[in-house]
Design a binder for these strands. Structure first.
Length: 115
DNA sequence: ATTCTGACAGCAA
DNA sequence: TTTGCTGCCAGAA
């Protein structure tokens, strides 16, 4: 892991990790929601990029609770298989065809739940 | 320094 | 309605 995007101080990445860790178990959120909470409304892509580098984070980041606005487990493949689905299922979420059932009901908006 | 990519989101056609 | 392009931010080559 030498080519890892090493962060030296609090950055967009860390903020994403912090928010992700604030996601209650069994709940999910979208990249856009996090992006908006960070103050960058349309920087959802950066959020995804940050989670992509979540491996660089010293702690475990529940990135499996972060999906796109469709409730689709777009990052499932980055977990290397069905890990993401299994984790969500273990937390009570219902995944069907890589999509979160009742996504709207279990959606957790940091910008609303948090301050 | 410039260009491309990336786990997205929004808007136009 | 679905499909496609653009916009956004940050990092890697």
């Amino acid at each position: 892991m030498l080519n890892m995007p090493v962060k030296k101080h609090n950055d967009f990445f860390v903020m994403v990790y912090e928010v992700a860790k604030l996601i209650p178990p069994g709940r999910v959120t979208s990249y856009g929601a996090i992006a908006r909470y960070l103050g960058s409304g349309r920087s959802a892509r950066t959020v995804g990029w940050a989670l992509n580098a979540c491996s660089a984070h010293p702690e475990f980041v529940p990135a499996h609770r972060v999906v796109n606005r469709n409730g689709l487990l777009t990052g499932k493949r980055h977990f290397g298989g069905s890990t993401m689905t299994q984790l969500l299922t273990a937390e009570g979420a219902i995944i069907e065809d890589d999509c979160i059932v009742n996504f709207k009901a279990m959606f957790w908006d940091p910008s609303a739940e948090l301050e």
